[in-house]
Design a protein around this nucleic acid. Sequence first.
DNA 1: TGTTAGTGTGACAAATTCATGACAAAAATT
DNA 2: AATTTTTGTCATGAATTTGTCACACTAACA
Lengths: 232, 232
Amino acid sequence: MPANILVVEDEPAIQELLALNITQAGHNAIRALSVEIAQDLMRETIPDLILLDWMLPGMNGLEFARSLKSNSLTKNIPIIMLTARGEEYDKVRGLEVGADDYVTKPFSPRELNARIKAVLRRRAPQMTDDPIELNGLRLDPTTHRVTGNQKTIDLGPTEFRLLHFFMTNAERVHSRSQLLDKVWGDRVFVEDRTVDVHIRRLRNALSISGHEDLIQTVRGAGYRLSAQNSNH
Amino acid sequence: MPANILVVEDEPAIQELLALNITQAGHNAIRALSVEIAQDLMRETIPDLILLDWMLPGMNGLEFARSLKSNSLTKNIPIIMLTARGEEYDKVRGLEVGADDYVTKPFSPRELNARIKAVLRRRAPQMTDDPIELNGLRLDPTTHRVTGNQKTIDLGPTEFRLLHFFMTNAERVHSRSQLLDKVWGDRVFVEDRTVDVHIRRLRNALSISGHEDLIQTVRGAGYRLSAQNSNH
DNA sequence: TGTTAGTGTGACAAATTCATGACAAAAATT
DNA sequence: AATTTTTGTCATGAATTTGTCACACTAACA
């Protein structure tokens, strides 16, 4: 299965090389020249793997890795560090922040692909029982409860699944049919507009905890759960 | 996680077979040809599970099981009885002395492993005789009684096991089939809905002590014992 | 300013899920 | 053997959840 691989590398030539390798291996390469660009892109799509240069302008790779691992939304994304020969790569510190592997530049395509394959192979199954925390809201699958602002909210089965999906796929727009697929299952026959109603019910429930516009409407596209409230 | 499994079986060929199965399942097999050897070995290591032949030279399996269950050090070790087809296994007496399950020889590896797995899976909350206290409720395993709010209530066997399980696994949702597995044991064939009835009986008993909403229904998911009541 | 497609909202009936009392079989107790 | 307790199942009614609809509202655009 094809995976989305985010390449964070400031050297265009090397980035080109990496992207070429990735696409030839049947994967999808998303390119970022800096950490900032990478963060922007991740608001759209959460990648399955990140190739991260050790030395970067601005925020360096190590810091970025650490920030990724400390966020429950992104902490399970495997990271492969890229280091130049000569640069002494602090393996201990790399592993410490949760890097899964590293590759030394210049790299052979064969080696790179082998590592990508290996990391993707052991990627964790999604649905875990770990609580998901986001913007002061905490969803706990083991308790089947949502907590926020000292308040515990009981959700109906569908509302719970819907919120669970939104929280594990936050900061992205999901069309109604995508939501039906992912939350209802792809074997049901339900109207698109039914999603609207459930969104409303979920919004109602979440308003108890003060999360008023956590779920936003993207006109003509669908809905999105976003931590940063775009008040324009 | 690997477990130490003591195999008490006088027939070398069968013992070999058992040990092979166990090691292939990732566990550690300790072999004993007789009860006496087993007792010796147990001075070294207390196993996590005992596979015990029903018919043994010298002290037989039943007596051994009984002696194990009467010793506080060993009484919590689960026992799976091995019986030959034809030997009629006295299920009642087996359960009486505390055997957790039994397997008929000749056995299929698949069956044996399934039973081992099942028994090990539910060893987690060690059934001790220590009282459990939670949220002003005190459950005493020796008397099968719960005390709360100056009132003491007698529980039936199943109600007791159910409450015991809930108290040792509080703040979590348990599906009906999980409860059947953990409280009834996976040997039995009972309807999912039966759980509902026992929940009701338990709730009835607990209401005497003023714990009205201690056990909550999570629609579409199961039941949960929780000190915290959701505030709507 | 008016038109229009897209979205919010309240209501409602159908479907689903659960609570409850009753009852007979099974077990335990006498 | 008789009695009491425990247990599993069922039928029924209660409660919640769910999908739809009709209509109100909004944003975008001519």
